[in-house]
Simulated scan of single mutants.
Amino acid sequence: MLTKTDPVDLTGFSVPGRGNGILDVFRRRYLLRLLVRKGVSTRYRNSALGWGWSYVKPLTQYFIYFFVMGIVLGRNNGIDNFAVYLLSGIIVVNLFNEAFSNATKSIVDNKALVKKIYLPREMFPIAAVIVAFVHFLPQVAVLVVVSSLVGWVPSLLELGAILLGALIVILFATGLGLIFGAVNVSYRDAQNLVEIIKMLATWGSPVLYSYDLIARVLPDWLQTLYMMNPLTSAVELFHYGFWFSTTDGGLQPPPNLVRDSLIGLLIVLAITAIGQLVFRRFERRFAQDL
């Protein structure tokens, strides 16, 4: 029998509820796969079109923008293959908006699991981002078909630009999702702020217009900040990857696209690190606030 003075051997035990954050998520890939599979399989459950909605919704959005911006406002006359230009920008913003929005709601939507068992809480926003990426792939398939119809034959450099653009968006949505997902547990106003950010993402990046229009109205220093916006870099990388080679060279890629893209990548890596710190700070209150 142990007495009050006898030491207790805690070898082999770990303090419950503590972990290594994002690193633990990828150490428990089986749980991550389960959450992703659940998110994908329940997305369109009991719907007639099912995965067809992954095509219908973005295409509907595309045709509205194409009619308003391309035909009514005449932007299709100033940009060669405006259909490819517009679609390649829209799917980037759609990926960010869906991943960011879903990650913000992920903790609250999984409150039953959060309150009952311990697992790395970061797993929920990361799984939400991966699910958004899965839904992004059918949109890429449509873009590939449309681009191929106008003569797109990708080079290794263009494929690298596409992959870098997707990586920037995924990391950006993950970092912001960690921050807003954690804050949203205690302050549900976060979801309203996310809607504002999503609107700014659509209009604050060169999706519905070309970047050179911004250069005409902004001073040089503000234009530089605009081009360093990670979403701007990602959109322009997709334009370079899918659209630029199909044109006659009228509108050139941004002059400092490589520099701005690398800066954007550093920014999203910093945001992801900050997101992890904020998430860990709020995490201790999740169970009681839910």
Rank of each mutant, 00 (worst) to 15 (best):
Y65L: 00
N94P: 09
V56I: 12
V72H: 02
L49T: 06
P58W: 06
I71P: 01
S47V: 11
N46Q: 12
L34N: 14
L49D: 04
K38T: 08
V92N: 06
I71M: 07
F66D: 04
E98S: 15
D24Y: 05
F96Y: 13
L87G: 07
V36G: 01
T42Q: 12
S41D: 03
P58S: 07
G89R: 14
V68Q: 00
Q61G: 05
N77M: 15
Q61W: 07
K38M: 11
Y65M: 06
F96S: 12
N94T: 05
W53R: 09
S88M: 09
A48Y: 07
G70T: 01
R28C: 13
F67K: 01
G78T: 13
K38W: 14
V92M: 07
Y44Q: 12
K38R: 15
Y44T: 13
Y55I: 15
G39E: 05
T104D: 04
I64N: 01
L87K: 07
L34A: 11
Y30Q: 14
Y44E: 11
G89F: 11
I79G: 03
R43D: 14
A83H: 13
I90E: 03
L95A: 14
L87F: 14
R29K: 10
V36S: 06
V93I: 09
F63D: 05
R37Y: 15
S101A: 15
L86K: 03
L32R: 04
I90G: 05
A103K: 02
F66P: 01
R33A: 11
N46G: 10
N76S: 13
W51T: 13
F67G: 05
L31D: 09
K57M: 15
N46P: 12
